[in-house]
Simulated scan of single mutants.
Amino acid sequence: MSNVIKAVLISAALLLPSIGWAQGKIAVVNLEQAILQTDYAQKRLNTERSSDAYKSDKAEFDRLKDELDGLVQEFQKEAAVMSQDQQLSARRRLASKQADLEHVAGKLQQTEQQVGQALLQEMSPKVQEVLQELITAEGIGLLLQRGSVIHADAGYSITAKVTDKLNQAFTE
């Protein structure tokens, strides 16, 4: 009986390394980051940021931020000598200015997200090609999206490689 167990253990020990080799290596990728860091995506984002509507919203954001910062400093300086009514009024102004700032920030963020989503859709076929090339070339047996991984050392990431290959593909 012990000879049978030994034979099974020896067979298992010899088989395990080959199973690991057959499965290939593990890698992670952040596709959104890989796409948005391409030269092509950066040009598109810069074009959007150069538009009159975006510049107007950005200027409004900067103005509101400066006003809010000024109101906060004034409130902090004067709060000790303010009556409760004055403090309540100042807090309402702060809350109103904060709401305005958040609204404009949301518009800016939404614009960038729309451009990002359009880029993701537009570049998706090329991304699939690049991923297939990398999976084959690197012998990757398991590729995970970075957002679904709790921890991965930088050595597991192929995000920069995907970005490089996309840069090459979109300059050709």
Score class of each variant (00 low, 15 high):
Ser2Ala: 11
Val4Pro: 01
Ala7Cys: 06
Ala7Val: 11
Val8Glu: 09
Ile10Ser: 10
Ser11Lys: 13
Ser11Pro: 04
Ser11Glu: 12
Leu16Cys: 15
Leu16Ala: 15
Ile19Pro: 00
Gly20Trp: 08
Trp21His: 13
Ala22Pro: 04
Ala22Thr: 11
Gln23Pro: 04
Ile26Gly: 01
Ala27Cys: 06
Ala27His: 01
Val28Ser: 03
Val28Gly: 00
Asn30Thr: 11
Gln33Leu: 12
Ile35Gly: 01
Ile35Asp: 00
Leu36Gln: 03
Asp39Gly: 09
Ala41Pro: 02
Leu45Ala: 09
Arg49Ile: 07
Ser50Asn: 13
Asp52Lys: 11
Ala53Val: 15
Tyr54Arg: 07
Lys55Glu: 05
Lys55Pro: 02
Ser56Ala: 15
Ser56Glu: 15
Asp57Arg: 14
Lys58Ala: 15
Ala59Met: 12
Glu60Lys: 14
Phe61Ser: 03
Asp66Asn: 11
Leu68Ala: 09
Asp69Cys: 02
Gly70Met: 02
Gly70His: 00
Gly70Ser: 12
Gln73Asn: 10
Gln76Glu: 12
Ala79Thr: 01
Ala79Asn: 09
Ala80Gln: 11
Val81Thr: 04
Val81Pro: 00
Ser83His: 05
Gln86His: 09
Arg93Thr: 07
Ala95Ile: 14
Gln98Val: 04
Asp100Glu: 13
Glu102Lys: 14
Glu102Met: 07
Val104Cys: 05
Gly106Asn: 02
Gly106Lys: 01
Leu108Arg: 05
Glu112Val: 09
Gln113Asn: 07
Gln117Asp: 04
Leu120Ile: 14
Gln121Arg: 15
Met123Phe: 02
Pro125Phe: 06
Pro125Lys: 12
Leu131Thr: 07
Glu133Thr: 14
Ile135Met: 03
Thr136Tyr: 06
Gly139Met: 05
Gly139Ser: 09
Ile140Asp: 00
Leu142Gln: 08
Leu143Phe: 09
Arg146Pro: 01
Gly147Tyr: 03
Gly147Ile: 03
Ser148Leu: 12
His151Gln: 05
Ala154Tyr: 08
Ala154Asp: 13
Tyr156Leu: 14
Thr159Phe: 06
Thr163Asn: 08
Leu166Asp: 00
Asn167Leu: 07
Ala169Arg: 07
Phe170Ala: 01
